[in-house]
Amino acid sequence: MKKRKIEVVVISDVHLGTHGCHAEELLAYLNSIHPKKLILNGDIVDIWQFNKRYFPPSHLKVLKKIIGMASRGTEVHYITGNHDEMLRKFSATSIGNFSIANKLVLNLDGKKAWIFHGDIFDVSIQNAKWLAKLGSYGYNLLILINRFINWCLAKMGREKYSLSKKIKNSVKGAIKHINDFEKTAADLAIEKNYEYVICGHIHEPKKEQYENKYGKTMYLNSGDWVENLTALEYSFKRWRVYHYNYDKLLPFFVDEDLKEMDMNELIASITEERKVKSSNINKKSLGKQGLTQDGDGM
C-alpha cells in the first residue's frame, strides 16, 4: 500500500515526554506519508517537563521514525520552541538531511513561507518564565484529568469531551490572547512581504486569509498532538489542515515492533541503520571502480 506523497508537512507541539502526548497516533500518521520536507515547528520534546521515569517506548519510536525519515531522503527541519528552547544553542546545526533553526523561510511555488514556533509573541514567557512553566504543569494535569473523564465517558458509550477547549472557549482572556497572537503574526508577515506565516505554540489549528490596509497573507497554525492531533500539509500549491480524528487515514498503523524499547536499543537501532547505509554506499562505489578498471583494461 502506497504512502501519500506530500511536498511539505508541518507538525508542532507534540510534547514528547508528557502524559498528554498522543505518540501512537502521530506514529500512525508519519507511517502513512512520504513528505519531501518535514517541518518540526517547536515543542516536539518537552524539556520543561522531562522526567526520566516517564518516556514510553512509543515516544522513543517517534524520534526513531523522524531520524529514519531523514536517513531516507526527507528534509527534516527542527524549529525550536519554548519547551525545547535548550536546543536553540544548536541553531544553524545541520547533519545530513536534519537541521536545527529558530525560524525558516521556504519558497513554495514562487511564494515565501515564514515559519517559526511563535512563543516570541507570548508575554508570559518573555517576562515571567516561571509562571509559564507553572501553567504548563497545570495544563498537563488538566490533560490527565481529561483522559480519565473520557475513559469513563467511553465506558458509558458517550462522546469524548475536552476540558481545555471548553475553558479556552469560555474565558474571554484566552480568546483575546489567541486573536492577538494571530493578528500580530499576520501583521508582521504582511510587513515583511511573506505570503504565508506558519506558527504553532497556541495549540489552535487554523488556516485563514488575513488582510489589512498594507496587504494580505495566509495565517496557518499546525495545532498540536495533545488535543487536536493536527498537521499542515502542502501539495499542489495548496495548504490544508489535516485532522487525524476526522480525515481518512491510510492503514499504516503503529509499527509491529513497538515493544519495550529503552534508549540503548534506540541508539543501537539508529547506529545499525547507518552501518547498513554506509555498507551499501561502499558496495556501489566498489562496483563503479570495478567497471572503470575493466573499461581501462579493454
Rank of each mutant, 00 (worst) to 15 (best):
M1G: 14
V8H: 08
V9F: 04
L16F: 02
T18V: 08
A23I: 06
A23D: 02
E25P: 00
Y29D: 04
N31I: 05
L38W: 01
I39Q: 08
N41P: 02
W48C: 06
F50S: 09
R53P: 00
P56M: 06
L60A: 07
I67D: 01
M69H: 03
A70H: 04
A70E: 02
T74E: 08
V76C: 05
T80P: 01
L87V: 05
R88H: 08
S94M: 13
I95L: 11
G96K: 07
N97C: 09
N97V: 09
I100H: 01
N102G: 15
N102P: 09
K103V: 00
V105K: 10
L108M: 03
D109V: 05
K111A: 08
K111L: 12
A113Q: 06
A113W: 04
F116Q: 05
H117I: 04
I120R: 14
F121R: 05
F121H: 14
D122W: 06
K133A: 08
C152L: 15
K155Y: 03
S162Q: 07
K166G: 00
K166M: 11
S170T: 10
V171H: 08
G173R: 11
N179K: 12
A185W: 04
A189L: 07
A189C: 05
I190V: 09
E191G: 00
V197A: 05
V197P: 07
G200E: 02
P205D: 04
K207N: 08
Q209R: 11
E211Y: 00
K216N: 09
T217M: 01
V226I: 15
N228A: 10
R240L: 09
Y246M: 11
Y246E: 15
D247H: 09
D255E: 14
D255T: 05
K259Q: 10
M263S: 10
I267M: 12
E272V: 03
K275D: 06
V276H: 08
N280F: 13
N282E: 15
N282D: 14
K288L: 15
T292H: 10
G295E: 13
